[in-house]
Amino acid sequence: MKRIAAFCLALSLAACQSTEQGQTENMGNNGAHNNIAPKPLYRDPGFDGAADPIVMWNPAEQRWFMFYTNRRASVEGLSGVAWVHGTPIGIAESTDGGVTWSYKTDAKINYPYAPKNEPATYWAPDVFENDGIYHMYLTIVPGVFEDWRHPRTIAHFTSTDMLNWDYVSTLKLNTQKVIDADVVKLPQGGYRMFYNDEPDGKSVYYADSPDLYTWFDQGKAKLTSRGEGPTTFFWNDYWWLVVDAWKGLAVYRSTDLENWQQQDSYLVAEPGTGEDDGINGGHPDVIVEDGKAYLFYFTHGGRVGENKGKDNYQTRRSSIQVTELKFDNGWLKADRNAPTKMTLKK
């Protein structure tokens, strides 16, 4: 309740009433029917800054979890990009196969080096399960800053319940300014992590590990363009790497996770017609189940019309969206305006 109260104080009465209505919908049936996912899929009821989604099944609780960076969009008086710092990792949950979501809690990140007198800055979690242990690879910024010029590292945490996360180590990667980890199990054994190296023009790099604990940097991935928020998955006989290219999502395919071909078109690049979906999508996650693939992404739904180019609550807030991917002539397509019928069943 404190989170919602703080949110309301940051808005005008009219905006707050609208937000409360949206929260009620997200925590109830969200306007969804016949398993059709609503637009937007989810907005955080506190800071209203849900971004960078990662969707995971929680077998102990028998529900889907969505981890996300919760940017402080609703907090007044933050200058520069301080609102993108001091960010907790929110957790939303779904009991109906991913159609409707409600806020559950913030992840408890037991990071021993967190600032003592200001909020910790946590970005872009990736969660990977192995033998009943959950591994989180989390971007950490050492403080709250008004610009982008500060170090950021990727740290490793483990959990048995997906709620409480214990610090293991900070990874030694190509530089001390890296973000957006994504881990995949290699078919030949071991694991690969793709991440964004900011000093090298925000290029995608990768590291390998035999055990999820010790990582060896392998340098730059063989991609033909830059981007952040990489996500990797196997579907229809190809490995896919989808990357936030800031103008939609760039798509690459591979048969060996080494050599990549880029798709000519970008996913969710053209504005959609759904609520909060009228702008390009960013930082994705993909769930593959029963032969279908679902693309989760976030949007800054208020960065349109008279607000375009401004810095205010409407342009800072963000929403999570979902659309189904289609395999077409060897490549990926997504019609973000088509109804998305969710079938997540685990």
Rank of each mutant, 00 (worst) to 15 (best):
residue 94 S to W: 13
residue 70 N to S: 04
residue 105 T to N: 13
residue 128 F to Y: 15
residue 107 A to K: 02
residue 93 E to N: 00
residue 119 P to I: 00
residue 135 H to K: 13
residue 132 G to S: 06
residue 110 N to S: 10
residue 134 Y to R: 11
residue 124 A to F: 01
residue 147 D to M: 06
residue 104 K to N: 11
residue 91 I to H: 02
residue 92 A to I: 12
residue 145 F to D: 04
residue 106 D to L: 07
residue 70 N to Q: 01
residue 93 E to V: 15
residue 82 A to V: 00
residue 106 D to G: 13
residue 73 A to K: 10
residue 91 I to K: 11
residue 177 K to F: 02
residue 103 Y to L: 00
residue 178 V to K: 10
residue 146 E to P: 09
residue 137 Y to S: 04
residue 182 D to L: 00
residue 140 I to Q: 15
residue 98 G to P: 08
residue 114 A to H: 12
residue 152 R to K: 15
residue 78 L to K: 10
residue 178 V to M: 00
residue 144 V to M: 07
residue 81 V to G: 02
residue 144 V to G: 02
residue 91 I to D: 05
residue 144 V to F: 00
residue 156 H to A: 10
residue 96 D to H: 08
residue 171 L to Y: 02
residue 78 L to N: 14
residue 149 R to M: 13
residue 136 M to R: 05
residue 85 H to I: 00
residue 141 V to C: 11
residue 76 E to R: 09
residue 100 T to S: 08
residue 182 D to C: 11
residue 155 A to T: 01
residue 88 P to M: 03
residue 82 A to E: 13
residue 154 I to H: 05
residue 75 V to G: 07
residue 81 V to D: 13
residue 156 H to K: 10
residue 70 N to K: 06
residue 167 Y to V: 01
residue 146 E to I: 02
residue 114 A to Y: 09
residue 80 G to I: 05
residue 132 G to W: 00
residue 162 M to L: 08
residue 84 V to W: 12
residue 154 I to V: 09
residue 119 P to G: 02
residue 77 G to Q: 08
residue 170 T to I: 13
residue 176 Q to V: 06
residue 90 G to H: 13
residue 118 E to Q: 12
residue 95 T to A: 12
residue 184 V to K: 08
residue 163 L to Y: 11
residue 92 A to C: 01
residue 176 Q to L: 04
residue 127 V to L: 13
residue 94 S to A: 09
residue 154 I to Q: 06
residue 171 L to G: 01
residue 172 K to H: 13
residue 71 R to N: 12
residue 87 T to L: 07
residue 147 D to T: 12
residue 131 D to S: 09
residue 177 K to L: 08
residue 73 A to F: 07
residue 123 W to K: 03
residue 76 E to C: 09
residue 180 D to H: 10
residue 140 I to S: 02
residue 87 T to D: 10
residue 112 P to C: 02
residue 72 R to E: 13
residue 123 W to E: 14
residue 116 K to G: 04
residue 83 W to K: 01
residue 151 P to F: 13
residue 121 T to L: 06
residue 136 M to E: 08
residue 90 G to W: 13
residue 168 V to N: 12
residue 165 W to V: 02
residue 132 G to L: 03
residue 73 A to G: 11
residue 183 V to E: 05
residue 172 K to W: 03
residue 136 M to P: 01
residue 112 P to Q: 08
residue 151 P to K: 08
residue 127 V to C: 06
residue 100 T to K: 07
residue 169 S to I: 06
residue 115 P to S: 05
residue 71 R to V: 00
residue 126 D to G: 05
residue 109 I to K: 06
residue 121 T to C: 14
residue 159 S to D: 04
residue 181 A to Y: 04
residue 182 D to S: 05
residue 81 V to T: 10
residue 99 V to E: 14
residue 71 R to I: 00
residue 156 H to T: 03
residue 169 S to N: 15
residue 113 Y to V: 00
residue 159 S to M: 03
residue 75 V to Q: 09
residue 115 P to T: 09
residue 89 I to V: 08
residue 85 H to Y: 09
residue 99 V to K: 09
residue 172 K to R: 15
residue 79 S to A: 08
residue 113 Y to M: 06
residue 165 W to K: 05
residue 77 G to S: 09
residue 100 T to I: 01
residue 134 Y to F: 11
residue 142 P to W: 12
residue 131 D to Q: 14
residue 124 A to D: 01
residue 147 D to N: 15
residue 82 A to N: 14
residue 167 Y to S: 09
residue 79 S to W: 02
